[in-house]
Every structure is written in structure tokens, then in C-alpha cells.
């Protein structure tokens, strides 16, 4: 991410940023009549495309140099410096942190708290269905052996979902419960991929445990 010099300027909605043939649209911009316009009030950033990794190899074949869209710098308008508040919508593929609010045999209802590295202002509701809890032995998954209300869960957004819920999945090793409270009310520590243990009572409880990073 290299910011080219002289491009950190202020943009207001509807401001012309440049022709669409020279820049790629990033967040906070839109294209109209083959031109790139700002759609947010904020600061313009131009990021150069990442160079291909590794040293340049000796040419073994001759290719026609083509200007692919990936080689264009991306212009984006961000709201850093305008206000600290930054509302984002969870998108498919994002990793979110959420708290379990309700469990039923078929699904766990969660409240999404953090999306990526942004603390959300509004409360968005998510749903982890029983078939999305883990990747293997899906038919043997029981929701009450995976989540309990009050647990903090790291999950991935797999769908925009229906009118009320985002659909989330914990079907990866590093996804699952990261913070759990025992029935006695103590914070527990993970012992293996499906168990948390209460340090005071010594009892273990079943969870879909997230692999520590």
C-alpha cells in the first residue's frame, strides 16, 4: 500500500476524482459516465497495486504487455479524520466477533459486535445454523454442545441472509467460541477442540472451540 504523493485531498459527494480508465474504484467511490466520482465526504487515498512477489525472473517467453485492470491504482475515499464513528455493514467473507443470545436445537442466534476491526454502532443480528457449526460430522452436531448464551464467538459471514439475520459459519479451525463462561459463572479456558474447563470447579463443558492464533 503506497500512497502516491499529492493525492491526499478532501472529497465531497459528487466530486470528480478521475477517469475510470486510469483508476479503479475503491470504497466510497462510484462510476458515472466512465468517470470516477466520490460518494462520501472524506479523504482521498490512492493505493498502488501490489507488485507481484519475488524477484523478477529472467524472461523465458515474450508476451505482449497488456494493461490489465489490476495494474491500475485504486482510488478510495475514507472517513478517517472526519469522524471517529464508522459504520460498516458485515459483508460475505468478513470475520466477525459476536455474542450468543439464544440457542435452539437448529440454530444459535448471535448479536454481531465487531466486524473486521471495526466496533459496530448498530446491533446486527446473526444466525449460526446447525449445519454451519463445523466442517466435519455435520450430522452429529448439537447446538447445545457447541454454544451457550453469553459466549463470545469468532465467525465468518457466509450470507447476507434474510430480512433479520446475517448467516454465519464457524466451520474452520480458527473459528468458534473464544470466550466462555461456565455454569458456575467463571471464565473457562480451552483444553481441546471441543472442551472448555472451569479452573475452579474443574468441570469441563462442551463447546466448538476456536483454535488460538
Amino acid at each position: 500500500m503506497a500512497t502516491s504523493s499529492g493525492t491526499t485531498s478532501v472529497a465531497i459527494p459528487g466530486q470528480l476524482l478521475g477517469p475510470a480508465s486510469k483508476f479503479q474504484p475503491g470504497p466510497g467511490t462510484h462510476i458515472h459516465n466512465a468517470n470516477l466520482y466520490s460518494s462520501l465526504l472524506g479523504v482521498v487515498h490512492a493505493s498502488q497495486p501490489a507488485k507481484p512477489p519475488g524477484p523478477a525472473k529472467r524472461l523465458t517467453k515474450i508476451t505482449v504487455p497488456t494493461q490489465t485492470p489490476a495494474e491500475l491504482p485504486t482510488l478510495s475515499v475514507s472517513r478517517t479524520g472526519v469522524s471517529e464513528k464508522r459504520e460498516v455493514l458485515p459483508e460475505v467473507g468478513n470475520t466477525v466477533l459476536c455474542r450468543v443470545t439464544r440457542i435452539t436445537p437448529r440454530q444459535a442466534v448471535v448479536a454481531i459486535l465487531i466486524c473486521g476491526d471495526t466496533v459496530l454502532e448498530a446491533e446486527w443480528q446473526g444466525l449460526i445454523r446447525v449445519q454451519d457449526v463445523r466442517a466435519t460430522e455435520k450430522d452429529k452436531v448439537k447446538i447445545y454442545e457447541s454454544f451457550r448464551p453469553g459466549d463470545i464467538v469468532r465467525a465468518e459471514v457466509i450470507s447476507l441472509g434474510d430480512q433479520a439475520n446475517f448467516y454465519l459459519s464457524t466451520a474452520r479451525n480458527e473459528l468458534g467460541v473464544i470466550l466462555a463462561t461456565s455454569e458456575a459463572g467463571n471464565n473457562m479456558y480451552p483444553v481441546n477442540w471441543k472442551e472448555y474447563m472451569d479452573p475452579e470447579t474443574g468441570l469441563s463443558e462442551l463447546r466448538k472451540v476456536a483454535k488460538p492464533y
Binding site: I12, P13, G14, L40
Partner: peptide, 11 residues
């Protein structure tokens, strides 16, 4: 709306 950060095509 611009202050709230909602995408607009123009002011």
C-alpha cells in the same frame, strides 16, 4: 447525510 457517511452520488 454527508456527515453520517452515507453514500450519495452528489450533494
Amino acid at each position: 447525510l454527508a456527515d453520517a457517511g452515507i453514500d450519495c452520488v452528489d450533494t
